[in-house]
Design a binder for these strands. Sequence first.
DNA 1: TTGTAGGCGTTATCAG
DNA 2: CTGATAACGCCTACAA
Lengths: 355, 355
Amino acid sequence: MPVRRSAPTSLDVARLAGVSQSTVSYVLTGSRPISAATRRRVEDAIEKLGYHPNSGARALRSRRSGVIGLMVPEAYGNDAVLMRFVGAIAREAQRFGYDILLVTAQEGARGIHRVVRTGVCEALILMELGRHDERVAAVIEAGLPFVLIGKPVGFPNGSVVDLDFERLGRMVVDRAADEGCERLLLFGEPGHRRHRNDVSRFLLGIEEQAEGTGLEVVLDGGGLPDVPARARDLARGGRRTAVFGLSGVTEVLFATAASGALADPELLTIALTDEDLAAISPLLARIPRIDPRRVEISELAVRELVRLLREDGASPRVTLVEPEWVEQEQEQEQRAEQEQPVEQTPAEHTSTPTS
Amino acid sequence: MPVRRSAPTSLDVARLAGVSQSTVSYVLTGSRPISAATRRRVEDAIEKLGYHPNSGARALRSRRSGVIGLMVPEAYGNDAVLMRFVGAIAREAQRFGYDILLVTAQEGARGIHRVVRTGVCEALILMELGRHDERVAAVIEAGLPFVLIGKPVGFPNGSVVDLDFERLGRMVVDRAADEGCERLLLFGEPGHRRHRNDVSRFLLGIEEQAEGTGLEVVLDGGGLPDVPARARDLARGGRRTAVFGLSGVTEVLFATAASGALADPELLTIALTDEDLAAISPLLARIPRIDPRRVEISELAVRELVRLLREDGASPRVTLVEPEWVEQEQEQEQRAEQEQPVEQTPAEHTSTPTS
DNA sequence: TTGTAGGCGTTATCAG
DNA sequence: CTGATAACGCCTACAA
């Protein structure tokens, strides 16, 4: 059995194909026309040797490492849902020939400088930024292409992909009103979390739309396990109440199920989650659900980054992805008869920041 | 404002410090004694310029990229818990100066060859391997240091870190017996999933220990939402029944709470999870819980890999981490009075494979 | 259409 | 204790 000391180089390929080393390189990069015959010989040699170009050398020479840095938020514990993003990002990056390198949020702006200066990453994706995040300044200063997942309030200085939280707020209010609710109970204390970009945009949508419909909005839902009791109090006297929150859906559904309040006709619980609730319990099968479209957001983020990388001088874009209603069959059919077809199809819209 | 065309190199540092370029390198790698004065000047210059060594060049020359590949399983959807591992691995790797590059499982053995041949990764962590996984052969052939998270049955040809699933099985049986249960209901169809390494080791522990205690083990718990009803049937007639499963804890707890069976004194539900159940609902506060110690496993995996990387000719090790009981206060106190202190302290034990 | 050659920034082997 | 110097493997401008 032959002992392979180290990986074959482009020179090995060249020798086997009977061409010069640069020809191999040109075949690989495609930056120069190559005759079909030569290309064929080179490709065969590559295949035969199992050749892969050395990424260090390539990066050193071309300043392109083929690696995208992904800065993941600190709060792994609270947000196991993160893996949805990370997985989808890794797969999509793969499709375009990029690898994903994790940068922990705990490294902060220094981490960004590090991966940029060392040249490990040629582009960055940043997640869950705070309102005034030092990392945004860092990545702009670094001068790399980058995409933010999570839109800041106002116009950012770069590309953004995010759920349209303002629209989400309006969707929730509309649904509650349509279903004859007089109140909307928001759990997860959004009133105290306006400092978060997503929360403040969501509340903006909620408040704007509530004004139009006359729906009463209750911001302090109390602790998550107490939500069902709180909701029942509110619904007392036939005032139908909708319940919604940006986080902690599982906990609230749990508490609601345990309290028996899921069956209460005066309560309308709306869930924001990408989980198939019916699979957790048939009791949840009829709960109207909004999908936060994490996979789509991830894929769009990668594609936007690839655009910035490939198109020379491409300008940044803001892409907001529309939340998507997911209804169970029975309910869906019922509703289809009563309503005229509104724009049910989820969509994205894109804009260019003016700042 | 000065325009920085590109990152400073070690030559820039050398000039500023008034030394040769190689001296800078020696200061950085520490592979040669340097006088305190020189080192000082060099370090100052590095600081002043914000210099970071170019990783491409470094990798090209030294064949060490400072990057560890992490092959994450395909099933992001089902296992949001994955992020616990990934986050902890990234942080621990960071501590030792390594970055984590994601390799999707969908790339399979080719993916391993790719990252090895290109030299992007100098070591690998593989998660959730199947019984006869092509990736193990690939990584062994590649000749890189590697660690598996998830122990195969029998002796692997490399380092492994995993939960001690056999012990977990015995712990569950012991607890059920201690609490006066006559039956143990295992949900998640473990009987049909013996092809999984963890499941088969778990069942081994269950069966061995059950033989000693005379506990009756029921393997087919039915679909997850049906578990509470099934358990109640079994518990009928005063035959106390314990309920446990390797996955789907949330779903089962949900269904149990909704059915009101959580209060049934004839049922003992034991959870395998790293979530704080009391935070989800006070109803869950008294459920005995076993922590799967994912963070510890992740950290140990990284440290084992670092050992393989640093210690020359280090031989592989198998490390099994002991599952840890986590009880709520009240119950903990009650139990403390009734029992003599058994080995409650979680521990790891390590062995060297003889294969 | 193809070949030649210089250099990307480091590490590490020579000397001194 | 420190300096010069030769690769590492690839890309690409320049020649042919």
